[in-house]
């Protein structure tokens, strides 16, 4: 058993460090979601009305929606490269279970997309005049929420990996599943702004993450097996 666990760890960490290194070599791609986030938030006051009162009241929701869209931006590429060059077949045939490899890949995706978005959100929140007290819950809720969304999005990426223009289908099948995360996350921020305790929302997001960690990796692995071999 110990031997198996050691094997699992070695294989999973190989994929994890490989993906991190690839992300580092593609640093410019890494910035794309952040730039999208920045531009979308910049456009917002120009499209509506720059009064601090209005911006402050819609800031929690807007920051969350834009972050959600930013995580979707490069989601369809998550497994595409591995599918195209045959790495995916190697993942499937490696001794360790596919869902562990999948988990490593999603973890890298979150570390390089979701986490930077969560850390950048407070800066953009200043631009949107988010009232005080909303900054910490914004970061915390986005940290948890982007992790859940990465796991859900990875299922969409796995289901559409064999489709040439999978991006649109991915968006269609993933968006409805994002809904609870958006509702809870945005409410976490707005209830904190209103001066209420927001630990309940954070706990809900944490529970969502726990559930997603249990349900999604096997589902993603199954989806990859189905869509990649035809």
């Amino acid at each position: 058993m110990d031997d198996q666990r050691g094997d699992n760890w070695s294989g999973v960490s190989a994929v994890f460090s490989r993906d991190l290194r690839l992300m580092w070599r593609h640093r410019s791609d890494l910035a794309n979601p952040l730039i999208f986030f920045l531009i979308a938030i910049t456009l917002l006051p120009l499209g509506v009305d720059p009064s601090r009162q209005l911006l402050g009241s819609i800031a929690p929701g807007m920051l969350w929606i834009m972050a959600l869209l930013a995580t979707l931006l490069s989601m369809d590429l998550l497994f595409r490269g591995d599918y195209d060059d045959g790495s995916l077949a190697q993942f499937q045939l490696a001794p360790q279970p596919l869902y562990l490899t999948v988990l490593a890949k999603v973890a890298v995706y979150w570390l390089t997309t979701g986490l930077p978005l969560a850390l950048m959100a407070p800066l953009l929140a200043v631009m949107l005049a988010l009232p005080e007290g909303g900054y910490i819950p914004l970061t915390l809720s986005l940290t948890l929420g982007t992790a859940v969304m990465s796991l859900i999005g990875a299922l969409g990426a796995a289901l559409t990996v064999c489709l040439r223009s999978g991006g649109l289908v991915l968006t269609l099948i993933v968006m409805p599943l994002y809904l609870p995360v958006l509702i809870i996350g945005a409410n976490c921020v707005s209830s904190a702004v209103a001066g209420f305790d927001y630990s309940r929302e954070l706990a809900l997001l944490g529970a969502g993450l726990a559930l997603a960690l249990i349900v999604m990796p096997p589902a993603i692995a199954g989806a990859l097996r189905i869509s990649s071999n035809q």
């Binding site: 690839l22 070599r25 490269g81 591995d82 195209d84 060059d85 045959g86 790495s87 045939l93």
Partner: peptide, 15 residues
């Protein structure tokens, strides 16, 4: 017990 190499080389261009 298996080593499989498909018709594509699982080689990443940036590594």
């Amino acid at each position: 017990a298996l080593l499989y190499l498909g018709h594509q080389a699982p080689v990443k261009a940036h590594l």
